[in-house]
Amino acid sequence: MPLDEAILDALTRNGAGTLSPPEIAHVIEPEGDWHALLMPIRRAAVTLALADRLVIYRKGKPVEDPNDFRGVYRLGLPKAE
Protein backbone atom coordinates (compact mmCIF):
# COMPACT_ATOMS: atom_id res chain seq x y z
CA MET A 1 0.00 0.00 0.00
CA PRO A 2 1.44 3.43 -0.92
CA LEU A 3 2.34 5.64 2.04
CA ASP A 4 -0.33 8.27 1.36
CA GLU A 5 -3.03 5.58 1.29
CA ALA A 6 -1.63 4.02 4.48
CA ILE A 7 -1.79 7.41 6.26
CA LEU A 8 -5.38 8.01 5.17
CA ASP A 9 -6.30 4.44 6.15
CA ALA A 10 -4.82 4.91 9.64
CA LEU A 11 -6.75 8.18 10.07
CA THR A 12 -9.98 6.60 8.82
CA ARG A 13 -9.66 3.70 11.25
CA ASN A 14 -8.97 6.19 14.06
CA GLY A 15 -12.37 7.83 13.56
CA ALA A 16 -12.87 11.52 14.27
CA GLY A 17 -9.61 12.13 16.13
CA THR A 18 -6.11 13.08 15.10
CA LEU A 19 -2.91 11.06 15.13
CA SER A 20 0.71 12.06 15.58
CA PRO A 21 3.30 10.95 13.01
CA PRO A 22 4.77 8.35 15.44
CA GLU A 23 1.29 6.92 16.02
CA ILE A 24 0.76 6.63 12.26
CA ALA A 25 4.22 5.10 11.81
CA HIS A 26 3.40 2.45 14.45
CA VAL A 27 0.20 1.56 12.59
CA ILE A 28 2.07 1.23 9.28
CA GLU A 29 5.15 -0.56 10.67
CA PRO A 30 4.21 -2.11 14.05
CA GLU A 31 7.19 -4.46 14.27
CA GLY A 32 9.92 -2.70 12.30
CA ASP A 33 11.88 0.54 12.28
CA TRP A 34 9.04 3.04 12.37
CA HIS A 35 11.45 5.96 12.97
CA ALA A 36 12.49 5.78 9.31
CA LEU A 37 8.89 6.61 8.34
CA LEU A 38 8.69 9.97 10.13
CA MET A 39 10.15 12.17 7.38
CA PRO A 40 8.32 10.33 4.55
CA ILE A 41 5.07 10.73 6.56
CA ARG A 42 5.72 14.46 6.87
CA ARG A 43 6.36 14.81 3.12
CA ALA A 44 3.26 12.76 2.26
CA ALA A 45 1.19 14.76 4.76
CA VAL A 46 2.17 18.04 3.08
CA THR A 47 1.19 16.66 -0.32
CA LEU A 48 -2.11 15.31 1.02
CA ALA A 49 -2.86 18.60 2.83
CA LEU A 50 -2.24 20.60 -0.34
CA ALA A 51 -4.74 18.30 -2.09
CA ASP A 52 -7.26 18.87 0.77
CA ARG A 53 -7.23 15.17 1.68
CA LEU A 54 -6.03 15.70 5.26
CA VAL A 55 -5.41 18.51 7.74
CA ILE A 56 -2.14 19.24 9.54
CA TYR A 57 -2.69 20.59 13.06
CA ARG A 58 -0.31 22.61 15.24
CA LYS A 59 -1.41 23.37 18.80
CA GLY A 60 -4.92 22.17 17.95
CA LYS A 61 -5.39 24.48 14.95
CA PRO A 62 -5.02 23.76 11.23
CA VAL A 63 -1.77 25.12 9.79
CA GLU A 64 -2.24 27.93 7.29
CA ASP A 65 0.57 26.83 4.98
CA PRO A 66 1.30 23.09 4.81
CA ASN A 67 4.66 23.89 3.20
CA ASP A 68 5.78 26.01 6.17
CA PHE A 69 5.21 24.66 9.69
CA ARG A 70 7.54 23.61 12.46
CA GLY A 71 7.48 21.54 15.59
CA VAL A 72 5.07 18.97 16.91
CA TYR A 73 2.06 18.34 14.69
CA ARG A 74 -0.88 16.00 14.33
CA LEU A 75 -2.82 14.81 11.30
CA GLY A 76 -6.55 14.46 10.83
CA LEU A 77 -9.13 13.99 8.13
CA PRO A 78 -10.95 17.07 6.80
CA LYS A 79 -14.19 17.79 8.59
CA ALA A 80 -17.33 17.02 6.58
CA GLU A 81 -19.12 20.24 5.74
Rank of each mutant, 00 (worst) to 15 (best):
A45W: 07
G76K: 02
P78Q: 03
E5R: 15
D9M: 08
E81F: 11
R13I: 14
V63L: 00
G76H: 01
P62R: 02
S20H: 03
A6Y: 03
T18M: 02
D4N: 11
P21N: 08
L11A: 02
G60I: 06
A16C: 11
V55K: 00
E64R: 10
A36T: 08
K59M: 03
E29Q: 15
L54T: 01
A80H: 12
R74V: 01
V72A: 13
H26M: 12
R13L: 15
N67M: 15
A25L: 06
T12G: 03
L8K: 02
K59L: 08
L3C: 13
L8T: 04
A16N: 15
K61G: 02
A49I: 01
P40K: 05
M1W: 09
T18Y: 12
K79E: 15
Y57I: 04
D52C: 05
L48P: 03
K61E: 12
R13S: 13
K59Y: 04
P22F: 05
A45Y: 07
V46K: 01
V63H: 00
E31F: 11
G60L: 08
V46Y: 00
N67A: 12
D9T: 14
R74M: 07
I7K: 01
E81Y: 11
D68V: 08
H35R: 13
A10P: 12
H35C: 01
P40L: 05
V27Q: 11
K61C: 05
E81Q: 14
N67L: 15
G60E: 12
H26I: 13
E31I: 05
E64Q: 13
S20N: 03
L77M: 11
Y73W: 14
P62W: 01
I7F: 09
R74D: 07
P30T: 11
L77R: 04
E31T: 12
A44N: 05
G15D: 04
G17M: 04
A16I: 11
G76D: 02
P40G: 10
E29I: 01
K61Y: 03
I56S: 01
K59C: 08
R74T: 09
V63W: 03
L37G: 04
L11N: 01
A25S: 07
T18S: 15
G60H: 06
G71Q: 09
D52I: 01
G71M: 10
Y57Q: 10
F69G: 04
L54R: 01
V63G: 03
S20T: 14
G60D: 07
I41G: 00
D9F: 10
